[in-house]
Design a protein around this nucleic acid. Structure first.
Lengths: 344, 344
DNA sequence: ATTAGCACTCTTTGTTAATGAGTGCTAACA
DNA sequence: TGTTAGCACTCATTAACAAAGAGTGCTAAT
């Protein structure tokens, strides 16, 4: 177990390094007025902390830098949530107050505000579409051969696909199809849509509609959705201001990573419910070895979920980000839930 | 007027500098086997070319680099379109052949292929929505107070907005409204929609529908569109491989620029019809001083237009890019026009 | 008109030395 | 026994300097 003094020293090392990005030495630590020991004593303690793996040297005679284990210990035991300035709280409320705007707009704004406030990069995962429920089907013919199929969900999301109509498919057939689909499928979630179609609806369709068979493949396409929510970014370029990104190769690697949807999504973990911190290599991604990700989930109504992630250097201001994220998460949840409730 | 030899030398300087990114010296030029003069002669010619403003030195005793005026002369007089390898042509066809995919998919693919082939950044401006014509209106109620308004256009594009319903607005009112809208507005372009609503439709609506007034503002919102097409990027990070972007500040400036929709759009010029080249400061944008933009427009059917831009360093392979862009432009035009025709 | 020759300029690279921040260890101290 | 002052040592950073190399402009010869 760490002594009280060791805890203090570790805390100073992390805090100082977070703000300065420079290795911190014994003299610097002893200058803090709540630290009473002399540099020499502190050096001894630091040697111990290093042996325990909490801090590291960048070279033989340099000051110390927190190790990954050190950060982990810090966030697990030394982190005290701080309260935000009223100015910041005001900023948040300004997004949520505005009732008129669309859900998408609120999410976009949130991402931007978070990245402005932290000067890190924000990734906001929109609510997973597959939990929305079908409110209405619609097929609008464009020509003899093509039409647009539209699904409206209970919270106002609209999905649409262009489909090909089989030859000899008449307006009356379209009408019949739409009726069947609406009768059978309204109220079920997009997630179940695919299987419901296969198991039941197609069968009915074949019975009532001419040339249904060649049409069914089109409908299959309609029912295929991305199974993750839409991705919104805020402050993509903020990271370039961080000193750890003076290295062009790192910049490139990170930028390329952010372009790839699947890799971005892999930063989120569906089992994370509250606020989670992943430090450096804990992200299991080479590019992220020098970065930390803090994720939080928000919920809309009862089950629809979205996530927020803030990506910053390992040397990131964990206290501040966690606090901000907590406010944002509850703000988003209640704002968006209200929107849904208004619509019930 | 430039002598034949000066033209040759200018051409070599541009061509060599484009591939090597290094200032080119007299010795290097004289080594080309179609250049017969000695380095000394070439030095004299280069002094003249410099006096005329076509080339520059990076320092007193360095080789020469094309000036902006030099590039301009090069693209205006020295550029010969080159034919593409069959391999490349095959790549293009592979996108367009696939008939099933959606228009959006084709555009996305095109942007990626172009940036892969050039290793520059591609920006593709989708067709301007405002020229689409209304095919069908639809209003789907979500609750007592909210509904989704949907506009389907003649080529399958779907626009939707969440709207608020006035109190005491019944399903029958919705039906009436939708009927009126469809009667009056089908066939007109989204561009005209706004004015048509104001001048004529709202009047009719007030006569037939209860509490239409408070509903009209919602409809106004529905009829407001972005007046430019959607933006697609390809190879956003390619630029980081260019040696001119070893400077972090330039990287940041460019990335920030690409995040701002309005600035991206300002790279395109609506009056440009064919292929246009803008070199460095010709773009009237500080960030773009070291970059060139080549734009091309493609058309869908008769009037709907979109644009392609390729952004590269001033030292970019103009010949190759122009050729590629020309193929892509006609390929896109015919592929997308076919899609529309299939739908008529 | 062309070119060989040469002095000169400027960048790039490597070497060396000085500076300074910080450590680890030893011995003195409370 | 825990703390601290003192000191030798390490390593990064910076500056100054020299050598090499690429390229130019000019002059004089062809």
């Amino acid at each position: 177990m760490l002594t009280n003094r060791q805890l203090q020293i570790l805390q100073v090392i992390v805090d100082d390094f977070v703000t300065s990005a420079q290795p911190v030495g014994s003299r610097q630590i002893s200058k803090k007025d709540w630290i009473t020991s002399s540099p020499a004593t502190i050096r001894n303690e630091m040697a111990d902390l290093e042996e325990l793996g909490f801090i590291e040297k960048t070279h033989t005679s340099s000051g110390r830098v927190p190790s990954e284990k050190g950060y982990r210990f810090y966030v697990d035991h030394l982190l005290r949530p701080i309260s935000m300035s009223t100015q910041e709280i005001g900023l948040f409320q300004s997004i949520f107050k505005n009732q008129i705007v669309e859900m998408e707009q609120v999410i976009r704004e949130s991402a931007n505000i978070l990245s402005d406030l932290t000067s890190y990069t924000t990734i906001l995962l929109g609510p997973n579409v597959s939990k929305h429920r079908v409110k209405r089907f619609q097929i609008v013919p464009l020509s003899e051969q093509t039409a647009v199929a539209i699904i409206v969900t209970d919270n106002g999301h609209v999905e649409n696909r262009t489909i090909t109509l089989p030859q000899g498919f008449f307006p009356s057939d379209i009408e019949k199809t739409v009726n069947i689909l609406n009768e059978r499928l309204v109220g079920i979630s997009l997630l179940e849509l695919q299987s419901r179609l296969e198991l039941e609806t197609f069968y009915v369709l074949r019975q009532h509609v001419n040339t249904a068979d060649s049409f069914i493949q089109s409908l299959r396409n309609v029912a295929t959705f991305q199974n993750e929510g839409k991705i919104y970014f805020g402050g993509k370029t903020n990271m370039l201001n961080q000193p750890e990104f003076h290295d062009l190769n790192k910049v490139r690697a990170l930028m390329e990573m952010m372009e790839k949807e699947s890799q971005v999504i892999s930063l989120f973990h569906p089992e994370d419910t509250g606020i989670h911190i992943r430090i450096g290599s804990e992200n299991n991604h080479l590019v992220m070895d020098d970065l930390s990700v803090i994720t939080a989930s928000y919920s809309i109504g009862n089950d629809q979920e979205g996530s927020i992630a803030i990506i910053g250097p390992k040397r990131m201001d964990y206290q501040r980000v966690v606090s901000l994220l907590d406010v944002m998460r509850s703000g988003l949840s209640s704002a968006l839930s209200n929107k849904v409730n208004d619509g019930l």
